[in-house]
């Protein structure tokens, strides 16, 4: 392809790239500053400024965070949420998507619209709360995963992906004597790695960041997930680092930590796991979204 090297084109490139770079910085800088301040000393934390370069570097804030029993408990709850919730959600989504992608299923369209209906209309918060309460979800670990176990949006993505697979694959398997479950598990799912990775990432992020259900239903401090703990730490100020042992131990060592730095260290701790997972799934992520959308 011939490249346009005119002045107008160069100027356009300059403006576009400048804009994109500035846009990128505006997104990255707050995160960068958060990480920087999470490693800052007590004195730097107190100044509450925006830093381009680290003025000090210490692991004390992170030591303090990881000494806190509540933080560790919340990380454990969030991790279990992700593991259990994502597993359950994937199983349900795969089954639902597969069934609704079968062209010979009687009433398929009706079932699909019925499920779609729930995406747009709900009975509202209060009936939902009352139903879950009646089902015994108050102060239950499962309230953070089971009620949100399947996302209709993700199901549609996956169903569309399944629909995009050639029918001949299924016909061949059927000729070899495969039943529906074998076809799904041995043929369709292995061929759907991109959409599996994409949807799994959606679910994992969602369950990691789960706080709404926990806020409504959880009173037991041992069941507070990390996202809710962060909310209370940063927005609500209703929770403070409660482990006096950690403070005493650091104080004995002559170490002072600032509450703002502790908040930012906790936020960083909460963000890093998902950031670490994302690069490994990114290639599937983009591809999966596109493929899921084509048939829609």
């Amino acid at each position: 392809m011939k490249q346009d090297k005119s002045f107008g084109n160069s100027l356009a490139n300059f403006i576009i790239y400048s804009f994109l770079i500035l846009f990128g910085i505006s997104i990255l800088f707050p995160f960068y500053n958060m990480v920087l301040l999470s490693f800052a000393s007590f004195e730097d934390s107190m100044r509450q400024g925006l830093y381009l370069w680290p003025h000090s570097f210490t692991f004390d804030n992170y030591r303090r965070v990881f000494m806190d029993a509540q933080v560790m408990s919340s990380i454990r709850v969030a991790t279990l949420n992700v593991l259990f919730g994502t597993s359950l959600a994937m199983v349900l989504t795969i089954f639902a998507s597969y069934v609704l992608s079968r062209k010979n299923l009687p009433g398929r369209r009706g079932m699909f619209y019925f499920i779609i209906f729930t995406m747009y209309f709900s009975a509202g918060l209060i009936p939902w709360f009352m139903v879950l309460r009646a089902l015994g979800f108050v102060d239950s670990f499962w309230v953070m995963t089971v009620p949100n176990a399947m996302s209709v949006f993700n199901m549609i993505l996956m169903r569309n992906y399944f629909l995009s697979l050639p029918d001949s694959l299924e016909e061949s398997a059927r000729l070899d004597g495969a039943g529906e479950f074998v076809i799904m598990w041995r043929i369709i799912v292995p061929l759907s790695a991109p959409i599996m990775a994409t949807v799994a990432l959606f679910y994992a992020v969602g369950f990691w960041n789960q706080w709404w259900n926990a806020m409504l239903f959880i009173q037991d401090v041992n069941l507070i997930p990390l996202a809710l703990l962060l909310r209370r730490l940063v927005i609500d100020n209703s929770i403070q680092f409660g482990d006096a042992m950690g403070v005493a131990q650091l104080a004995q060592e002559g170490i002072r930590v600032h509450s703002r730095a502790l908040e930012l260290a906790t936020v960083t701790v909460a963000t890093i796991p998902i950031l670490c997972v994302y690069p490994f799934l990114q290639k599937y992520f983009t591809k999966g979204i596109m493929l899921g959308a084509i048939k829609a």
């Binding site: 918060l125 309460r133 409504l216 909310r231 609500d236 100020n237 209703s238």
Partner: peptide, 19 residues
């Protein structure tokens, strides 16, 4: 004890009242 936060106690109180 029924613990609430400063920023969500109004929301929770109304939800619980309605339920």
């Amino acid at each position: 004890p029924i613990d609430v936060g400063w920023d969500n106690h109004v929301e929770l109180a109304h939800l619980w009242a309605a339920a």
